[in-house]
């Protein structure tokens, strides 16, 4: 994998008005050499379809309002149904700590709280991309 840029689908909820955080993380991932498809979604199907068509290594979902548990519950099985078992799924944003474990159980590889330096996400992706599965 080394040398080939990691491709990330950065999916941000359409109704989340705060676009700043996701745009910032998009830039940080780019500055770390990643190719970031920035994309606002309304439904789980839109994420799945975009991930499929774009052939991404990572799906990073940015959530600034609630709904992350419901989303993860639907997203992971939908990805598996399309045969995308080798994609990394991470969540970031305003997510209470108590939800980290349930998210992990649903198949989300890692959840990041808001306000984290982008380098933490970058390091996690670089260390685990291609090694995790759903």
């Amino acid at each position: 994998m080394s040398g080939k840029p990691v491709k990330v689908l950065l999916a941000k909820k359409k109704i989340d008005v705060h676009g700043r955080a996701s745009k910032l993380i998009a830039r940080e991932l780019r500055d770390a050499g990643m190719e970031v498809v920035y994309f606002r979604f309304g439904t789980v199907d839109e994420i799945v379809n975009a991930a499929l068509q774009e052939d991404v290594d990572v799906i990073a979902v940015s959530i600034m309002t609630s709904g992350h548990l419901h989303l993860a519950e639907n997203l992971v099985p939908a990805l598996k149904a399309k045969g995308m078992n080798d994609v990394m799924v991470i969540f970031g944003g305003i997510i209470p700590d108590v939800d980290f474990e349930p998210l992990r159980k649903m198949g989300v590889h890692r959840a990041f709280p808001a306000g984290l330096p982008g380098s933490v996400v970058v390091d996690y992706i670089n260390a685990n991309v291609g090694k995790v599965g759903l």
Partner: peptide, 25 residues
């Protein structure tokens, strides 16, 4: 950095349930 932000797809939403539209950034 060699990285990129690919923002075109974000303007082309509304076709995700249409199997006959294939968008690749």
């Amino acid at each position: 950095s060699g990285g990129a932000v690919l923002g075109d797809r974000d303007r082309m939403t509304g076709f995700s349930s249409d199997g006959e539209v294939f968008i690749r950034s």
